[in-house]
Design a protein around this nucleic acid. Sequence first.
DNA 1: TTGATTGTTCGACTTTTTCGAACTAACGAA
DNA 2: TTCGTTAGTTCGAAAAAGTCGAACAATCAA
Lengths: 109, 109
Amino acid sequence: MRVIHHPDIHEIALANLLYALGDPVRLAIAQRLACEGDLPCCELDVSVPKSTLSHHLRIMREAGLLYCRKEGTQHINSLRRAELESRFPGLLENILQAAQVEDAATPSA
Amino acid sequence: MRVIHHPDIHEIALANLLYALGDPVRLAIAQRLACEGDLPCCELDVSVPKSTLSHHLRIMREAGLLYCRKEGTQHINSLRRAELESRFPGLLENILQAAQVEDAATPSA
DNA sequence: TTGATTGTTCGACTTTTTCGAACTAACGAA
DNA sequence: TTCGTTAGTTCGAAAAAGTCGAACAATCAA
């Protein structure tokens, strides 16, 4: 497996960040990581095949939204919550809250 | 010209909203409308041809981000700022502020 | 009617997304 | 070591979305 690139906090572009969150699958992943803490890919239980999941996670990584570290055979993903807070104060937390507002309004599961 | 559809405030999905803002051209349009107030398409001065602009504005409209009304020969665009504030408190304002943070950090023009 | 301005729609081309199949990496057990 | 299992990535082809010039439609003013 190749070296995984993570952008420096100052290289993170707002439009990329919003793009990374502007997909139902990726937004759900962000919510889950926010609630549950760090998780390996296999515990994200999304509704897409693993090749597609891999693609979504790459977009999120390259946008600067999450950090990925290797632990044995798994890849642990974590939101870059504190870093993002320092670069765009309130932004991620506000989006996560909006996601909960939406979930509360649409009680699906 | 066909009737323009605007989604009801409760139909607005967060992921669509973030997607609509997750493009540099569209984010710039949102910023400009936030600063200058309502504007016709021709005064948005974006760097894309008008057919592409028309496409971007449709995505923003259908996401529920902006409202478009006809006035004579022009189409006046306005952010659905108050409505969005009631549905997702703080969200749009926070994103607009983050956009300014980014602009301040990267003084291009 | 003619001309100017504003914006949408069409069609072709390019880019991005999706997903199964094949592959690589790390680990445990025999 | 070798085999088997689990975890993820990469490849390649098909589908979907974005881009942009050209043609079109709507409004207004000579």
